[in-house]
């Protein structure tokens, strides 16, 4: 399933098309709360896709990716509050700084393998979280400490990344998601992607064939951090509040990683599938049972993770694609099932 993606962007073309149309019109007839959940679905899908670029393709497990989200959020928000710079521009400033930060961090980290890499990313996340929680000022610039930064509501200002209602946010995120999916697709079907997959399957063999390990891992890291920072800006503008405990927190990092892994690491649409499956369920559960049973939603995450690791080690992506291809053949839309082998 993975080997034939070239020239076959949408494997279940018919259902893929339906899916795109659904994503385009879905929030329009919905009440605000459902729209909110849909925005979250796209947001987590986007974050998981960013994570996927570095960790899904290279195979190293980062459990501190929220750091880059937080950095992006803080940079654009501080720029907005101190210099009244539009987040649309601040977003790119944040992305560039986060990207540089990610490469500096990635350089020593990528020498470490497996659990050491995961532990270092956790340590990094905790380090930054504790630091931000305990410092209200950075070089005299107010960053809020543990109280976080509150963005004042100023009304409808598209130039300043502020809209009325959820719908505009939804479409902004949808565009972001389309971009990251396209980037993932391009990476996957380019030299970088092939190199990264080679590094994942066997780093020693890849190196002996002349694949420069460090450089390609860092390229992936740079792209991932750059895109992750955009999500941070979106987070700040959408929730109008950033708190270090959540945005630099270990829980968010793990959540992002789990969505991508459950969806299917190293696939283009896996993170989106993972998010579509997990986010509505858990948001619904925390909305309805959050009072009596706090933690039920994260409990579900835990159980689903174990089940997926056990029964679908490659994630749900392959099963979903296979199901829809089968459905297509069943209702006779796809005339050439052997197209799968092309």
């Amino acid at each position: 399933m993975n080997s034939n993606t070239k020239g076959n962007f949408l494997q279940g073309r018919f259902f893929g098309l339906i899916g795109i149309i659904l994503l385009l019109v879905a929030p329009l007839p919905m009440p605000t709360y459902q729209q909110h959940i849909l925005v979250l679905v796209l947001f987590y899908a986007y974050c998981a896709s960013c994570w996927n670029i570095v960790c899904g393709f290279v195979g190293t497990l980062s459990l501190g990716h929220a750091v880059f989200l937080g950095l992006g959020a803080y940079i654009s928000t501080v720029l907005l509050q101190q210099l009244s710079l539009s987040p649309w521009i601040g977003m790119f400033v944040g992305a560039i700084i986060t990207c540089i930060f990610g490469v500096i961090i990635g350089y020593p980290c990528f020498r470490l393998s497996g659990p050491y890499f995961a532990l270092t990313t956790i340590a990094l996340g905790e380090l930054l979280r504790i630091w931000v929680e305990n410092n209200e000022y950075l070089f005299g610039v107010y960053i809020g400490g543990s109280r976080g930064l509150l963005l004042e509501q100023t009304g409808y200002q598209p130039v300043a990344f502020e809209f009325n209602g959820k719908i505009p946010y939804y479409y902004v995120m949808l565009v972001f998601l389309a971009v990251i999916l396209y980037v993932t697709y391009r990476i996957k079907n380019s030299k970088i992607g092939y190199y990264l997959v080679a590094i994942r399957s066997d780093p020693d063999a890849a190196e002996s064939l002349g694949v420069p390990l460090a450089r390609y891992k860092l390229i992936a890291m740079a792209i991932s951090c750059f895109m992750m920072a955009f999500a941070g800006t979106f987070y700040a503008q959408f929730f109008r509040y950033i708190g270090p405990t959540r945005i630099f927190g270990h829980a968010l990092s793990v959540q992002i990683a789990l969505i991508a892994l459950i969806g299917g690491q190293g696939t283009v649409f896996g993170p989106l599938f993972g998010s579509l499956l997990l986010v509505p369920v858990t948001e619904f559960l925390s909305e309805h049972f959050g009072g009596e049973l706090p933690g039920l939603n994260l409990f579900i995450y835990g159980v689903v993770t174990m089940l997926v690791v056990f029964y679908m080690p490659k994630g749900i992506h392959d099963y979903i694609v296979r199901f829809f291809s089968w459905l297509e053949r069943l209702i006779g839309i796809s005339k050439k099932p052997e197209k799968q082998k092309a």
């Binding site: 497990l61 995961a118 789990l258 706090p294 933690g295 835990g302 993770t305 690791v309």
Partner: peptide, 21 residues
Amino acid sequence: PASLLLITVGLNNALVNLAMM
């Protein structure tokens, strides 16, 4: 190692949040 790590992360999430409930 990712799957071994993940299953324990999942177990931890399940245990902690079961206790939370």
